[in-house]
Design a protein around this nucleic acid. Structure first.
Lengths: 134, 134
DNA sequence: CCGCATCCGATGGGATACTG
DNA sequence: CAGTATCCCATCGGATGCGG
C-alpha cells in the first residue's frame, strides 16, 4: 500500500482506490475534522466560536486541524484587519461536498451505534468471565 | 463532548450525534479497518490471506484491528480445530451494513482526491515562496 | 482575539523474535 | 499457521507562556 503518486498499471487500481480512501480517512478520521465540518455547515464561524461549540478542543488542536483542512482546500480562512482581530472559517464548495460522507457516517452511527455498543458489552463480559475461569 | 452513556436532555442530542460519529470514526478512522472491511466484502478470508492482500500491515496491527472489529460485532472470527490452524474472518450483517459508508468514502475519495491534492500543492508552494521571501 | 513556540508525557505502531 | 511479547522510536496531543 505504497500510495505512489502515479500508477500506470491498471491492476493496481484497487490499491489506488484504497489509497485514496486512506488519504481521505487520514484527513477526516482524526478527532476534530468531522466536528468542525459539522459546525461549519450552518455558516462561517470565527475561531473562538468554533472553540466554544466544540467542548474539549484545545486551541492548538483547533488551529492544527483548521490548517489541515485549509491546506486540503476544504475550508477558507479569512483574516479581517480589525482590532480586535477577527478570523472567519468557512466551508469551500469542496468542503461542502464532504457533507454527503459526513451524513453517511452520522446516519450509520445513529442507527447502528446501539448494536456496536451491545456487541462490545457482550464481547467484554465474555472476555472477563473467561479470564475469571483461569 | 463528554459522551455520557445516557442523556435525557434533548438539547444535547446534537452532541450525542457527534458523539456517535466520533465513536464510529474511532473505529473505522484508523489505518486498517476500512481496508479489512473492503477485503472481506468478497467473502471470508483467513489471517495470512488478509495479510498478503494488505501489503504493509504487520501481524500485530492486523490482529489488533481484527480484534477491535470483532469486539464491535463487525466481523466474526472462526477457529477451525485442524492442523495447521485455520482461522477465518468474515463480515457480520452489521459489518456488511457498513458498506454504504465505505462506498461513500471511497466514492468521495475517488472523485475529489485530485482537488485535495491540487489544493495541497498550491498551499505548500505558497507557503514555501512566502518563506523564501523572508 | 488569534494564534505560535516550546516542553513533555502518553500513545501508536513498526521490527523482530518467539510460542501453541 | 496464527498469533503473542518485547523493544523502541515517532508522533500526538495537553499545558503553558509569549507575540501581533
Amino acid at each position: 500500500m505504497k500510495c505512489s503518486t502515479h500508477l500506470e498499471d491498471s491492476e493496481q487500481v484497487d490499491s489506488l482506490r484504497d489509497c485514496a480512501s486512506r488519504q481521505v480517512l487520514d484527513r477526516i478520521g482524526d478527532a476534530w475534522s468531522v466536528l468542525i465540518v459539522t459546525q461549519l455547515r450552518a455558516g462561517p464561524l470565527r475561531f473562538t466560536e468554533l472553540a466554544r461549540k466544540m467542548d474539549g478542543v484545545t486551541p492548538k488542536m483547533l488551529t492544527q486541524t483548521l490548517r489541515g483542512l485549509e491546506r486540503d482546500g476544504l475550508v477558507t480562512r479569512t483574516v479581517h484587519a480589525v482590532v480586535p482581530p477577527r478570523v472567519d472559517y468557512e466551508l469551500t464548495p469542496l468542503g461542502r461536498s464532504l457533507e454527503g460522507v459526513v451524513d453517511a457516517i452520522t446516519a450509520w452511527a445513529d442507527s447502528h451505534i446501539g448494536d456496536v455498543l451491545a456487541a462490545r458489552g457482550s464481547y467484554d463480559s465474555k472476555a472477563s468471565t473467561a479470564k475469571n475461569r483461569s
